[in-house]
Nucleic acid binder design. Structure first.
Length: 436
RNA sequence: GGAGGAGUGGCCGAGUGGUUGAAGGCGCUGCUCUCGAAAAGCAGUAUAGGGGCAACUCUAUCGCGAGUUCGAAUCUCGCCUCCUCCGCCA
């Protein structure tokens, strides 16, 4: 949620920047409701004060009840409940409207109306020239019996798969490699220095989070999207959703808490199976394992102070690039435009890896910087040294979405006779195995 | 799933209808004392919202929500969480 004070101070900018992100916000109605609310509050508080004083008088009147005072109290109670009902209505409308306001994009976010206006910030590595027609991952998997979508469809429907054999070992090798890398202060220090960031090299703590969460924290995280993305878990009365990313159970971890400043930055590397409805994507990426209802993902999440929020974001992008480079995958870095960064984001970066089967760069990573937008509703705060309480800044970023990463490795490392070379850095985690 | 018990400030803990936003203790901060420290003493020490240039002031919050009452931490109902016992279970 955005700061109402910011809207009061910058009504035009809020309308304009919301529009840039594709959100039409009725700022004047919002401010009018805000004013109504603030006009109603003093009256209610005065009534409450009278009620409290009246009750005190009844008590001090001694043993026998004073009928006049009790009558007065009953009257005040009625007046108060009417006024509170009115305020409640206004606050409900205001809250609803306030939630339609997206986070404001940072100044360097390109303005654009669709994802076509995203900007390629840089391209790293050259797509490998194959002396044969490179295959898709499903073609490579078939003879080796690494992916079984047909039986998965029989059991769970479309967009599910059984991953098997060496592919599974490869996935867990990636997991080990990432945990090792993000736990290594030397790697972080190097990336911090190379990018001139003003940060400490505190390593990431691995986390296995719950894969489900309740409605209330999910809504507060600004990530619940019941129409297109989020699966309900169990029956409605269970009030549980399947997380669509470990980010959703990580960013909500400190819901309603005030953290001591020395805890920050908190850097987590979470591993979780993620579930997505993929509504409205019928037929899109129907083949292979690129777009699934269920996939495993390593996700970075950082809680920081406001001052270091941007640098933490830049560090996460640097880590993403480092990880992709270590796997030897050609990629490009996309600076997402205002239309594509998402409602709670102030800035968003995608990394697209090269997929030889399609001959295209496709999205494998994303990095989101939410400033205090997400923390405001989640009420995740930090008590600074001087005692002031402030909202934290939140950042999340993909380390590896395993399905897409496996696909990228398979396609980029394929040989003419249909084998797959294991990237050098992963071999130690596969008992030295060099080929699938 | 069944039966019972409990949830109070950073922590422990008192409090079953009336200056209790909350005793007492611990912790923390400042001051006094000291060459310094400890000890001791004094003072302060929640969050959110409204008003005020400010000092300050008002309102709300005792797991969450609703209700009863002139008045609720305290009574009633629903929910959540934790603990104990039984059952089931990786």
């Amino acid at each position: 949620m955005i700061d109402i004070q910011f809207i009061r101070d910058n009504p035009e900018a809020v309308a304009e920047k919301s529009k840039q992100k594709g959100y039409i916000v009725d700022v004047s109605q919002l401010l009018q409701l805000d004013e109504e609310r603030r006009n109603l509050i003093p009256g209610i508080e005065a009534l409450r004060q009278q009620r409290n004083e009246n009750a005190a008088k009844v008590k001090n009147a001694g043993g026998k009840p004073d009928e006049a005072l009790i009558k007065q109290g009953q009257l005040l109670k009625m007046e108060l409940s009417q006024a509170e009902e009115q305020l409640g209505g206004v606050e409900e409308q205001l809250d609803k409207l306030l939630r339609t306001v997206p986070n404001m994009p940072l100044d360097d976010v390109p303005v654009g109306a669709t994802e076509d206006e995203n900007v390629v910030a840089k391209t790293v590595g050259e797509p490998k020239e194959f002396e044969f027609k490179p295959k898709h991952e499903w073609e490579l998997a078939e003879p080796k019996n690494l992916i079984d979508k047909e039986r998965a469809a029989k059991i769970a429907g479309s967009r599910f798969a059984y991953l098997k054999g060496d592919l599974v070992k490869l996935q867990f090798a990636i997991v080990q490699f990432v945990l090792q890398t993000l736990g290594d202060e030397k790697v972080l220090e190097k990336l911090i220095q190379e990018n001139n960031l003003n940060l400490v090299a505190k390593p990431f703590t691995p986390v296995l989070p719950p894969a489900m969460l309740r409605t209330e924290p999910y809504v507060a995280s600004a990530r619940l999207n019941a129409e297109e993305v989020t699966y309900r878990a169990g029956q409605p009365e269970d009030d549980l959703w399947l997380n669509a990313s470990a980010e959703h159970t990580l960013c909500t971890m400190y819901w309603n808490e005030i953290l001591p400043e020395d805890m920050l930055p908190i850097r987590y590397i979470g591993y979780s199976t993620s579930f997505r409805r993929e509504a409205g994507t019928y037929g899109k990426d129907a083949e292979g394992i690129f777009r699934m209802h269920q996939f495993d993902k390593l996700e970075m999440e950082v809680f920081s102070t406001a001052e270091t929020g941007v640098d933490e974001h830049l560090l996460l992008v640097a880590i993403q690039e480092y990880l992709v480079q270590q796997l030897g995958l050609p990629y490009r870095v996309i600076q997402k435009c205002t239309a594509d960064i998402g409602k709670p984001n102030a800035r968003g970066i995608d990394i697209d890896c090269w997929f030889p089967g399609q001959g295209k760069y496709r999205e494998t990573h994303t990095a989101d910087y939410m400033t205090d937008y997400q923390a405001r509703d989640l009420k995740v705060r930090v008590r600074r040294g001087g005692g002031e309480v402030e909202l934290v800044h939140t950042n999340d970023a993909t380390a590896f979405a395993l399905g897409r990463t496996l696909k990228a490795i398979m396609e980029n490392y394929q040989t003419h006779d249909g084998h797959i070379i294991v990237p050098e850095v992963l071999r130690p985690y596969m008992g030295g195995q060099s080929e699938l």
